[in-house]
């Protein structure tokens, strides 16, 4: 087991992910509202938020699957819109739901991803072997993906993201569907990987943030409402709360508005209603 430093002692390195003013509209829906985010080497960033807050949309813009309505993404110094091919080489990505080709065998699938990443011949074989070993896929490497359990499917998704040993990892719910043992293994792996690269992972499990992340970002209605270390997040909870303190902070930030904000919102909604009524 690798020795991992306690989370807050790490000194962040070079910025590997720089998102500037990321904005996304789907027709009338304003899904992401001008997000600025810089993730440095050595940071494991936990991306939190209620369902529909814009987590997946943001990750899809970071990886170039969705084009932002406004804003820019730079990955390891390469602008995604200027050199998409170059930028895509810098990261490994686990999309939401860990998609894979059902009819392909695990090994065959990883070989395909390896080839796409520029491996050939012996280097390809070695890269597949290393990653199969790393995420414990040895037992299923000759099975087709459709026959795998949810946990194995997720690990295949993780393996394909890791195969080229990227400096940036973007993982949409990497532990979803895993049993407690598998969750533990994957968290250990992510914590180990995070020491010399940038990891962005989205999750619904707040204990995961404490367990693996050096930084927590909470997004609500497309805006960042918290950005700090898990300790800082914890300290936001009132003293009186002695259990599930992060849950408390999360709820406070994503459901309740401050009195001010709430009244402004009411006024805004009334204003809209009046306008619509008068038309």
């Amino acid at each position: 087991m690798p020795q991992t430093p306690t989370t807050d002692q790490r000194t962040p390195g070079a910025p590997l992910i720089i998102a500037h003013g990321l904005d996304k509209r789907f027709g009338a829906i304003h899904a992401v509202r001008g997000i600025d985010l810089t993730v440095r080497s050595g940071e494991v960033l936990g991306f939190l938020g209620p369902n529909g807050a814009g987590k997946s949309t943001t990750m899809r813009m970071l990886t170039g699957f969705l084009e932002p309505t406004a804003g820019s993404v730079t990955l390891d110094g390469i602008a995604l819109d200027r050199d998409p091919l170059g930028a895509k080489r810098t990261f490994g990505y686990l999309p939401e739901g860990a998609p894979g080709y059902p009819d392909m065998r695990v090994e065959e699938f990883l070989r395909f991803i390896g080839r796409a990443r520029g491996f050939t011949g012996d280097a390809l074989r070695k890269a597949v072997d290393v990653v199969v070993d790393r995420v414990n896929l040895g037992a299923v490497r000759r099975q087709t993906i459709e026959t795998l359990s949810k946990g194995f499917k997720r690990r295949v998704g993780l393996a394909q993201a890791l195969i080229h040993n990227p400096r940036i990892l973007i993982l949409d719910e990497p532990t979803d569907g895993l049993d407690p043992n598998q969750k533990h293994e994957v968290r250990e792996l992510i914590r180990h990987l995070g020491s010399d690269r940038s990891v962005v992972l989205s999750t619904h499990i707040l204990e995961e943030v404490e367990a693996v992340c050096t930084r927590a970002v909470i997004i609500n209605r497309g805006e960042i409402v918290f950005d700090g270390t898990p300790n800082e997040m914890d300290s936001r909870a009132p003293r009186s709360v002695d259990r599930n303190r992060l849950d408390h902070v999360f709820r406070a930030l994503t459901t309740k508005d401050t009195a001010d904000e709430a009244s402004r919102r009411v006024a805004r909604s009334l204003g809209v209603a009046v306008k619509e009524g008068s038309r």
Binding site: R60, T63, G64, F65, P84, L85, K88, R89, Y93, P95, E96, G97, P99, G100, Y101, P102, I113, A116, R117, G118, Q160
Partner: peptide, 14 residues
């Protein structure tokens, strides 16, 4: 349907 298009498009392919 399977969502693999997200994988294809985010791999280094044009």
């Amino acid at each position: 349907r399977t969502g693999t298009i997200e994988l294809l498009v985010t791999l280094p392919f044009t």
